[in-house]
């Protein structure tokens, strides 16, 4: 551990590599976190199956690429559409019934969904760790000390593109406006003739599609495995809890920060601490939020 810290101090270029890697990975985390903030803010559903959606998107990309020989990056639109349909179906089957129940219900129901999805993925694709091969090598920088997979830059670009598309959609399309109206006051929206059930269905499906897209990128820049979803779910919760709901710049900043922190902990402490880092971050963020709240005599609710 001390050895790694010495390396970081004596070779500043290493830091550049870690930060660049962290930013690229963090951008992908931001997508799933934004999806969570969306369903949380609009329909008050805490989706604990968030990570499983990501992993499922990853498996779809991996599977399509493997069977058709397509480049996995090109499967992104297909996966997004498939996941959109999947999300809509899940909404109709179960989420519709938990929207207006108390908060724990949605958390537990989606936890159940997460278990089902993990196992289904395991039965369908097996427990092995998989990577979707993008097939382009690494980019070398700073005289060869820093080398970053080219796909990471592609992923970063894709994230900006997707985030921009979603923001534009929320701002300018009719459905986007309806979603924003519903998130502010569902009852008023209903009185004004907005079909909130459709809005909820669309929001949940959109979240699923965003997660699916993030999953495609995850399958290429990280690895996928049926049980790795939990970590992605926890990441989304860390980011959204740190940023607060409905704070898009905050979500992006926290996601990038989390990405960088994970890279550093992976380098300094070792890869076996990856999950631990994420979960400990969650606990720290929660404690910090409580401290903030207690200063104005409030609690985190």
């Amino acid at each position: 551990m001390w050895g790694s810290i010495e390396v970081l101090l004596s070779l500043p270029a290493y830091n550049v590599g870690l930060i660049l890697n962290g930013l690229c990975v963090g951008a992908v985390f931001a997508l799933a976190a934004y999806g969570l903030a969306l369903v949380w803010g609009v329909m008050n559903v805490k989706n604990l199956a968030q990570g499983e959606f990501v992993i499922m998107g990853g498996y779809l990309a991996w599977y399509i690429a493997k069977t058709t020989g397509m480049n996995p990056l090109l499967t992104l639109p297909i996966v997004a559409v498939l996941m959109f349909v999947f999300g809509w179906a899940i909404y109709v089957l179960m989420i519709r019934r938990v929207v207006d129940k108390d908060l724990f219900t949605s958390l537990l129901a989606t936890f159940g969904l997460a278990i089902v999805m993990q196992q289904a993925l395991n039965l369908a694709f097996g427990p092995e760790v998989q990577v979707a091969q993008f097939g382009r090598g690494s980019v070398s920088m700073m005289g060869g000390i820093v080398s970053i997979l080219e796909i990471k830059f592609w992923a970063f670009g894709m994230c900006i593109l997707l985030a921009g598309a979603v923001v534009a959609f929320m701002k300018f399309s009719r459905m986007g406006q309806a979603i924003r109206a519903t998130s502010q006051d569902a009852r008023a929206a209903r009185v004004m003739g907005i079909n909130t059930d459709r809005v909820y269905a669309f929001t949940y499906a959109l979240n699923s599609a965003i997660c699916g897209a993030a999953g495609v990128l995850v399958a290429m820049i990280m690895v996928i495995q049926p049980y790795y979803g939990v970590t992605h779910s926890v990441r989304s919760f860390v980011i959204v809890t740190a940023a607060g709901i409905g704070n898009l710049p905050g979500v992006i900043m926290s996601a990038l920060g989390l990405g960088v922190i994970e890279q550093y902990s992976g380098f300094v402490l070792g890869a076996e601490f990856q999950v631990a880092t994420v979960v400990v971050m969650l606990l720290l963020v929660l404690i910090w939020r409580q401290y903030q709240a207690s200063r104005i005599r409030q609690v985190v609710r």
């Binding site: 805490k46 537990l108 809890t241 606990l283 929660l286 709240a293 207690s294 609690v299």
Partner: peptide
């Protein structure tokens, strides 16, 4: 962790 309520406590 008892300053957390509802879903935050569950997640925490």
């Amino acid at each position: 962790f008892f300053g957390l309520r509802g879903p935050y406590f569950a997640i925490g």
